[in-house]
Design a protein around this nucleic acid. Structure first.
Lengths: 344, 344
DNA sequence: GTGAAAGCGCTAACAT
DNA sequence: ATGTTAGCGCTTTCAC
């Protein structure tokens, strides 16, 4: 295992200095074509590979972006990360990945870890447990770009990319009303996360618009998961005045809802069901699930684009007010309608 | 934006030298408890945060592991990465993520990028397009751990973690035979990737064992995707002697197969269908899909465990022969059987 | 137990 | 166009 060649080795071999080598390697314009050429040639000959660490230490830029997601296993997030990585790679940036696992403390540790690794900036979707944002202020202090996606919250002083969650809730509820449903239940989380509150607001707005009285017994907050969907539905079915439609907090919750309904001998769209997220499976289950698409890929691309401009900017702080709000997309399928669906 | 505190600041404030500070911070045992204490206190007071970059440059260890996957969007891989990240985080390592996007060139670039970032090692599942492994030998040269997962290949000199793919193919085919099917088709990729060849070998072994003649017209190699499943199935249905069961290269292919069968008015298990991967959706589609589970989470955990021991080892090269072979798990569902299934 | 000093490999003024 | 020379912040011998 012989030592890696450094710019010193190139300089020595060529009888020039390291600054010249460095310039040649970095394509500086104040260098002669011949020198540049011989340096490049010698670099290849010595199998030279730059040590980005040394460069980073000296220049202060690592070309690494920290990304914190609740879980990389959730399709929405992996899809987002995937899209982000593609865009960043193109711009010469890499992604250091950290999962908060929906834990606030883990998220704090993540910020620390990534900051110590000297990332050039941080992109995050806060955990469900995150209710204060002090740990994110450190990015400010270090004058490093911070961007929040999906679980946006105006209490965080940073640009944010997400969907219009109020509208998403509205879309879900109004779609159901227009499909003829009247008693629309809502099974979701008790989390104080802004986007979930907003979805609920949208649901309320739709009810109001269509002059449907709000009935709090139709709101169940047991979390978001298959199990939560099942137990929430069972609870709803016990009501003297049952719902005729149920909105799930996400597609997994909706899956649980479908399962519980099926066990009770009810086949949607007899009772309507709407999910959130447009998980891959939602098109393929039977009945296929009506849901709201969150545009993970587009969100990733938009986030990358915005973030790259922040990285150029001398004072990323000034962009803190920036918001990118993508349209939620209602995907109508068989849990709310009897039309034949085709897999695509 | 005042400058971050360094060990120099701590040293100056305390009237001691940076070596002492460094030792105290790193919990060296040849330091007095009082000094250690005062250093820690002062560090906190100055809001000191270590610069891992500097430490890495000096020590040669970054505590960052490069991970190259074909795509972070595929559930198997995101699930693997997620599991890996959890285990590594626990051991103080972070993950630098790179997607090859099934391109050999991109994969090569990935190796370069990660190596320049001075990762402490590399974990990879090679792209479908990867047929030579020179780019991975660089890890050897730098004496850094390399681990291959899932798409294992004995031509790579590195420890490998995967499932027994021959057995997986065998399980799929023998299960079908035992369920009463006789003409079993195989829709997969033409890729020369070892694991796909092995699955096919397993399929052949099952046929042989049950004395079912091999019929090459039942083997379709159009790739693995929903579309490939659809067109492959349409092709098979045109045969004068149709198959009575079809194995798909992965769950998406199987999804396409189901779709094409449904269009042709055929409802499994009339024709049996088996997939690979146990994607999340496979339990929830109708009919639910019989498939082979690849144990992504366990594979991630096993990989992390093995990799961590390699990181301890002075000569990780010596572990190149190490293989961890997980059992593929047959998940029997409704596409091969009429028993009632319950969502779990 | 603590200090002095030489690096780690590169960047970026400043000089020439 | 090229060279000189401080660093970047930390680790790690080697002394004392």
């Amino acid at each position: 295992m012989k030592k890696r060649a450094t710019i010193y080795d190139i300089a020595k071999a060529l009888g020039i200095t390291i600054s010249t080598v460095s310039r040649a390697l970095n394509n500086s314009d104040l260098i002669s074509a011949t020198t540049k050429d011989s340096v490049l040639r010698m670099a290849k000959q010595l199998d030279y590979r730059p040590n980005r660490l040394a460069s980073s230490l000296s220049s202060g830029k690592t070309y690494i972006i920290g990304v914190i997601v609740p879980s990389a296993e959730i399709h929405f997030f992996s899809s987002f990360v995937s899209s982000l990585e593609v865009e960043f790679k193109r711009a010469g940036y890499s992604i250091l990945l950290y999962q908060s696992n929906e834990s606030f403390q883990s998220e704090e540790n993540g910020v620390t870890t990534l900051l110590e690794a000297q990332v050039d900036g941080l992109i995050i979707s806060p955990s469900l447990a995150t209710t204060n944002f002090k740990h994110l202020e450190r990015l400010h202090q270090e004058n490093k770009p911070l961007l929040v996606f999906d679980r946006t919250d105006n209490r965080i002083a940073a640009p944010q990319v997400g969907i219009d969650d109020e509208k998403a809730g509205y879309l879900a509820a109004s779609h159901l009303v227009q499909a003829g449903y009247q008693r629309i239940a809502f099974v979701s989380t008790a989390s104080e996360i802004t986007i979930f509150k907003n979805r609920f607001e949208g649901y309320l707005r739709a009810l109001k618009q269509f002059k449907i009285p709000f009935d709090s017994s139709l709101v169940v907050r047991k979390g978001m998961s298959i199990d939560a969907g099942i137990s929430g539905t069972n609870e709803l079915l016990k009501l003297s005045r049952r719902p005729d439609a149920i909105i799930g907090g996400d597609d997994f919750t909706a899956l649980g809802i479908l399962n519980a309904l099926s066990k009770a001998g009810i086949q949607p769209p007899e009772i309507g069901v709407v999910g959130f997220a447009n998980q891959l499976f939602s098109a393929y289950i039977t009945p296929s699930l009506t849901t709201i698409d969150q545009q993970a890929t587009k969100m990733g691309a938009e986030s990358a684009k915005l973030f790259l401009t922040m990285l150029q900017s001398a004072s990323p702080q000034e962009m803190a007010e920036k918001r990118v709000v993508l349209e939620p997309i209602l995907i109508t399928r068989n849990t709310t309608s009897l039309e034949k669906q085709v897999l695509d």
